[in-house]
Amino acid sequence: MHVPDGFISAPVSVAAGVVAATGVAVSLRGARRELDERAAPLAGLVAAFIFAVQMLNFPVASGTSGHLLGGTLAAVLVGPFTAVLCMSVVLLMQGVFFADGGLTALGVNITVMGITTTLVGYGLFKVLVAALPRTRRSVSGAAFVGALVSVPAAACVFTLIYAVGGTTDVALAKVAGAMIGVHVLIGIGEALITAATVSSVLAVRPDLVHGARGLARTLELRDGALPTASAAPTAPAAPTASSTTQA
Protein backbone atom coordinates (compact mmCIF):
# COMPACT_ATOMS: atom_id res chain seq x y z
CA MET A 1 0.00 0.00 0.00
CA HIS A 2 3.03 2.31 -0.20
CA VAL A 3 1.83 5.30 -2.21
CA PRO A 4 4.40 6.67 -4.69
CA ASP A 5 4.94 10.29 -5.74
CA GLY A 6 2.39 11.69 -8.16
CA PHE A 7 -0.47 9.45 -7.07
CA ILE A 8 -2.07 12.09 -4.89
CA SER A 9 -2.07 15.75 -5.89
CA ALA A 10 0.49 18.10 -4.34
CA PRO A 11 -1.88 20.17 -2.12
CA VAL A 12 -3.52 17.08 -0.64
CA SER A 13 -0.09 15.48 -0.09
CA VAL A 14 1.00 18.55 1.84
CA ALA A 15 -2.23 18.54 3.88
CA ALA A 16 -1.72 14.85 4.71
CA GLY A 17 1.85 15.74 5.66
CA VAL A 18 0.54 18.25 8.19
CA VAL A 19 -1.84 15.64 9.63
CA ALA A 20 1.00 13.13 9.87
CA ALA A 21 3.36 15.64 11.49
CA THR A 22 0.72 16.53 14.06
CA GLY A 23 0.11 12.87 14.80
CA VAL A 24 3.81 12.22 15.23
CA ALA A 25 4.22 15.30 17.46
CA VAL A 26 1.37 14.16 19.71
CA SER A 27 2.81 10.65 19.81
CA LEU A 28 6.25 11.95 20.76
CA ARG A 29 4.71 13.44 23.89
CA GLY A 30 2.61 10.39 24.58
CA ALA A 31 5.53 8.01 24.10
CA ARG A 32 7.50 9.83 26.78
CA ARG A 33 4.61 9.08 29.12
CA GLU A 34 4.40 5.46 28.02
CA LEU A 35 8.10 4.70 28.22
CA ASP A 36 9.68 7.69 30.08
CA GLU A 37 13.37 8.06 29.33
CA ARG A 38 13.59 4.55 27.93
CA ALA A 39 11.58 5.80 24.94
CA ALA A 40 14.47 6.07 22.47
CA PRO A 41 16.06 2.62 22.77
CA LEU A 42 12.79 0.73 23.29
CA ALA A 43 10.83 2.44 20.53
CA GLY A 44 13.85 2.01 18.26
CA LEU A 45 14.04 -1.71 18.94
CA VAL A 46 10.28 -2.13 18.53
CA ALA A 47 10.53 -0.29 15.21
CA ALA A 48 13.28 -2.70 14.17
CA PHE A 49 10.96 -5.53 15.24
CA ILE A 50 8.11 -4.15 13.09
CA PHE A 51 10.55 -3.80 10.21
CA ALA A 52 11.62 -7.43 10.59
CA VAL A 53 8.08 -8.73 11.11
CA GLN A 54 6.98 -7.06 7.88
CA MET A 55 9.45 -9.33 6.13
CA LEU A 56 7.86 -12.39 7.74
CA ASN A 57 5.61 -13.69 5.01
CA PHE A 58 2.77 -16.01 5.77
CA PRO A 59 0.86 -18.07 3.24
CA VAL A 60 -2.65 -16.80 2.48
CA ALA A 61 -3.97 -18.97 -0.31
CA SER A 62 -2.35 -21.23 -2.87
CA GLY A 63 0.84 -19.54 -3.95
CA THR A 64 0.24 -16.07 -2.59
CA SER A 65 1.54 -14.74 0.67
CA GLY A 66 0.88 -11.67 2.73
CA HIS A 67 2.71 -9.85 5.42
CA LEU A 68 1.79 -7.99 8.52
CA LEU A 69 1.35 -4.21 8.61
CA GLY A 70 1.75 -4.32 12.37
CA GLY A 71 -0.05 -1.16 13.52
CA THR A 72 -2.50 -2.89 15.84
CA LEU A 73 0.09 -5.42 16.98
CA ALA A 74 2.50 -2.68 18.00
CA ALA A 75 -0.27 -0.70 19.72
CA VAL A 76 -1.40 -3.68 21.79
CA LEU A 77 2.16 -4.64 22.69
CA VAL A 78 3.74 -1.27 23.48
CA GLY A 79 0.92 1.28 23.57
CA PRO A 80 -0.66 3.48 20.90
CA PHE A 81 1.73 6.45 20.99
CA THR A 82 4.86 4.37 20.71
CA ALA A 83 3.17 2.34 17.99
CA VAL A 84 2.45 5.43 15.89
CA LEU A 85 6.08 6.50 16.31
CA CYS A 86 7.39 3.07 15.34
CA MET A 87 5.16 2.80 12.29
CA SER A 88 6.06 6.34 11.18
CA VAL A 89 9.76 5.68 11.59
CA VAL A 90 9.51 2.44 9.61
CA LEU A 91 7.64 4.23 6.81
CA LEU A 92 10.09 7.14 6.86
CA MET A 93 13.00 4.72 6.56
CA GLN A 94 11.36 2.85 3.72
CA GLY A 95 10.69 6.14 1.93
CA VAL A 96 14.03 7.84 2.43
CA PHE A 97 16.50 4.98 2.37
CA PHE A 98 14.84 2.28 0.34
CA ALA A 99 12.85 4.51 -2.05
CA ASP A 100 9.71 2.54 -1.16
CA GLY A 101 6.84 5.04 -1.11
CA GLY A 102 7.36 8.57 -2.40
CA LEU A 103 8.83 11.37 -0.31
CA THR A 104 5.92 13.72 -0.98
CA ALA A 105 3.51 10.85 -0.31
CA LEU A 106 5.11 10.21 3.09
CA GLY A 107 2.36 12.18 4.82
CA VAL A 108 -0.30 10.08 3.09
CA ASN A 109 1.53 6.86 3.93
CA ILE A 110 1.98 7.75 7.59
CA THR A 111 -1.60 8.96 7.92
CA VAL A 112 -3.02 5.82 6.33
CA MET A 113 -0.73 3.02 7.48
CA GLY A 114 0.66 4.46 10.69
CA ILE A 115 -1.96 6.61 12.34
CA THR A 116 -5.21 5.12 11.03
CA THR A 117 -4.35 1.47 11.66
CA THR A 118 -3.10 2.26 15.15
CA LEU A 119 -6.01 4.52 16.15
CA VAL A 120 -8.75 2.26 14.82
CA GLY A 121 -7.12 -0.98 15.92
CA TYR A 122 -6.21 0.19 19.39
CA GLY A 123 -9.47 2.09 19.93
CA LEU A 124 -11.53 -0.98 19.15
CA PHE A 125 -9.19 -3.14 21.21
CA LYS A 126 -9.61 -0.88 24.23
CA VAL A 127 -13.40 -0.84 23.97
CA LEU A 128 -13.55 -4.63 23.69
CA VAL A 129 -11.10 -5.25 26.53
CA ALA A 130 -13.19 -3.00 28.77
CA ALA A 131 -16.37 -4.84 27.81
CA LEU A 132 -15.10 -8.42 27.91
CA PRO A 133 -14.13 -10.41 31.02
CA ARG A 134 -10.55 -9.80 32.10
CA THR A 135 -8.89 -12.90 30.75
CA ARG A 136 -6.01 -13.54 28.40
CA ARG A 137 -8.35 -15.01 25.86
CA SER A 138 -10.39 -11.82 25.62
CA VAL A 139 -7.22 -9.75 25.19
CA SER A 140 -6.20 -11.81 22.15
CA GLY A 141 -9.79 -11.77 20.92
CA ALA A 142 -9.91 -7.99 21.17
CA ALA A 143 -6.58 -7.77 19.35
CA PHE A 144 -8.06 -9.99 16.62
CA VAL A 145 -11.05 -7.70 16.09
CA GLY A 146 -8.93 -4.57 16.29
CA ALA A 147 -6.53 -5.80 13.62
CA LEU A 148 -9.38 -7.17 11.50
CA VAL A 149 -11.06 -3.77 11.28
CA SER A 150 -7.92 -1.62 11.19
CA VAL A 151 -6.76 -2.73 7.73
CA PRO A 152 -10.03 -2.08 5.83
CA ALA A 153 -10.30 1.17 7.81
CA ALA A 154 -6.91 2.20 6.46
CA ALA A 155 -8.14 1.33 2.97
CA CYS A 156 -11.22 3.53 3.57
CA VAL A 157 -9.06 6.47 4.62
CA PHE A 158 -6.88 5.94 1.56
CA THR A 159 -9.99 5.96 -0.63
CA LEU A 160 -11.10 9.18 1.06
CA ILE A 161 -7.74 10.83 0.36
CA TYR A 162 -7.93 9.53 -3.18
CA ALA A 163 -11.41 11.03 -3.57
CA VAL A 164 -10.10 14.44 -2.53
CA GLY A 165 -6.74 14.45 -4.26
CA GLY A 166 -6.50 11.50 -6.64
CA THR A 167 -4.75 12.30 -9.90
CA THR A 168 -6.62 9.79 -12.04
CA ASP A 169 -10.24 9.61 -13.06
CA VAL A 170 -11.02 6.04 -12.09
CA ALA A 171 -14.57 5.95 -10.77
CA LEU A 172 -14.48 6.25 -7.00
CA ALA A 173 -16.75 3.25 -6.54
CA LYS A 174 -14.27 1.06 -8.42
CA VAL A 175 -11.32 2.22 -6.32
CA ALA A 176 -13.28 1.86 -3.10
CA GLY A 177 -14.51 -1.60 -4.10
CA ALA A 178 -11.09 -2.89 -5.08
CA MET A 179 -9.21 -1.33 -2.16
CA ILE A 180 -11.66 -2.33 0.54
CA GLY A 181 -12.30 -5.77 -0.96
CA VAL A 182 -8.62 -6.66 -1.08
CA HIS A 183 -7.97 -5.20 2.34
CA VAL A 184 -10.77 -7.11 4.01
CA LEU A 185 -8.85 -10.24 2.98
CA ILE A 186 -5.53 -8.80 4.14
CA GLY A 187 -7.25 -7.78 7.37
CA ILE A 188 -8.19 -11.39 8.10
CA GLY A 189 -4.56 -12.47 7.79
CA GLU A 190 -3.45 -9.50 9.87
CA ALA A 191 -6.03 -10.34 12.53
CA LEU A 192 -5.05 -14.02 12.74
CA ILE A 193 -1.36 -13.31 13.09
CA THR A 194 -1.87 -10.36 15.46
CA ALA A 195 -4.06 -12.38 17.82
CA ALA A 196 -1.73 -15.38 17.74
CA THR A 197 1.33 -13.21 18.35
CA VAL A 198 -0.32 -11.36 21.23
CA SER A 199 -1.42 -14.60 22.85
CA SER A 200 2.04 -16.11 22.51
CA VAL A 201 3.62 -13.06 24.18
CA LEU A 202 0.92 -13.18 26.85
CA ALA A 203 1.83 -16.76 27.60
CA VAL A 204 5.49 -15.95 28.21
CA ARG A 205 5.77 -12.34 29.32
CA PRO A 206 2.30 -10.97 30.10
CA ASP A 207 3.95 -8.01 31.79
CA LEU A 208 5.26 -6.81 28.42
CA VAL A 209 1.85 -6.56 26.80
CA HIS A 210 0.73 -2.96 27.21
CA GLY A 211 -2.89 -3.77 26.40
CA ALA A 212 -3.05 -6.39 29.17
CA ARG A 213 -1.82 -4.15 31.97
CA GLY A 214 -5.05 -4.49 33.94
CA LEU A 215 -4.90 -8.25 33.78
CA ALA A 216 -2.24 -9.06 36.36
CA ARG A 217 -3.59 -9.85 39.79
CA THR A 218 -1.87 -8.05 42.59
CA LEU A 219 0.22 -10.27 44.80
CA GLU A 220 -1.36 -10.89 48.16
CA LEU A 221 0.52 -11.28 51.38
CA ARG A 222 -0.15 -14.50 53.25
CA ASP A 223 0.59 -14.60 56.92
CA GLY A 224 1.57 -17.41 59.20
CA ALA A 225 1.27 -20.98 58.03
CA LEU A 226 3.17 -22.08 54.94
CA PRO A 227 1.02 -23.45 52.16
CA THR A 228 1.23 -27.19 51.68
CA ALA A 229 3.87 -28.27 49.20
CA SER A 230 1.37 -29.59 46.68
CA ALA A 231 -0.61 -26.37 46.26
CA ALA A 232 1.56 -24.23 44.03
CA PRO A 233 0.67 -20.56 44.36
CA THR A 234 -0.73 -18.97 41.24
CA ALA A 235 1.72 -16.21 40.58
CA PRO A 236 0.45 -13.78 37.99
CA ALA A 237 3.52 -13.27 35.84
CA ALA A 238 5.09 -16.69 36.12
CA PRO A 239 7.12 -17.28 32.97
CA THR A 240 5.92 -20.52 31.48
CA ALA A 241 8.00 -21.47 28.50
CA SER A 242 6.01 -24.58 27.75
CA SER A 243 3.67 -23.10 25.19
CA THR A 244 6.14 -21.22 23.05
CA THR A 245 8.59 -22.11 20.39
CA GLN A 246 11.80 -20.50 21.48
CA ALA A 247 13.64 -21.40 18.34
Partner: peptide, 30 residues
Amino acid sequence: QARDVRQLPVVAKSAGALFIRSYERGERVH
Protein backbone atom coordinates in the same frame (compact mmCIF):
# COMPACT_ATOMS: atom_id res chain seq x y z
CA GLN B 1 7.16 -25.61 5.88
CA ALA B 2 4.72 -22.73 5.55
CA ARG B 3 2.11 -24.24 3.27
CA ASP B 4 -1.21 -22.71 4.24
CA VAL B 5 -3.11 -20.95 7.00
CA ARG B 6 -2.74 -23.87 9.40
CA GLN B 7 0.97 -23.04 9.79
CA LEU B 8 0.09 -19.54 10.90
CA PRO B 9 0.35 -20.21 14.66
CA VAL B 10 4.00 -21.19 14.24
CA VAL B 11 4.78 -17.97 12.37
CA ALA B 12 2.90 -16.01 15.03
CA LYS B 13 4.84 -17.67 17.85
CA SER B 14 8.06 -16.78 16.08
CA ALA B 15 6.85 -13.19 15.85
CA GLY B 16 6.00 -13.26 19.56
CA ALA B 17 9.41 -14.65 20.47
CA LEU B 18 11.01 -12.04 18.23
CA PHE B 19 9.11 -9.28 20.00
CA ILE B 20 10.21 -10.49 23.42
CA ARG B 21 13.81 -10.73 22.27
CA SER B 22 13.70 -7.26 20.72
CA TYR B 23 12.08 -5.68 23.75
CA GLU B 24 14.48 -7.31 26.18
CA ARG B 25 17.39 -6.24 24.03
CA GLY B 26 15.99 -2.70 24.16
CA GLU B 27 15.97 -2.87 27.95
CA ARG B 28 19.57 -4.10 28.02
CA VAL B 29 20.64 -1.39 25.58
CA HIS B 30 18.97 1.21 27.76
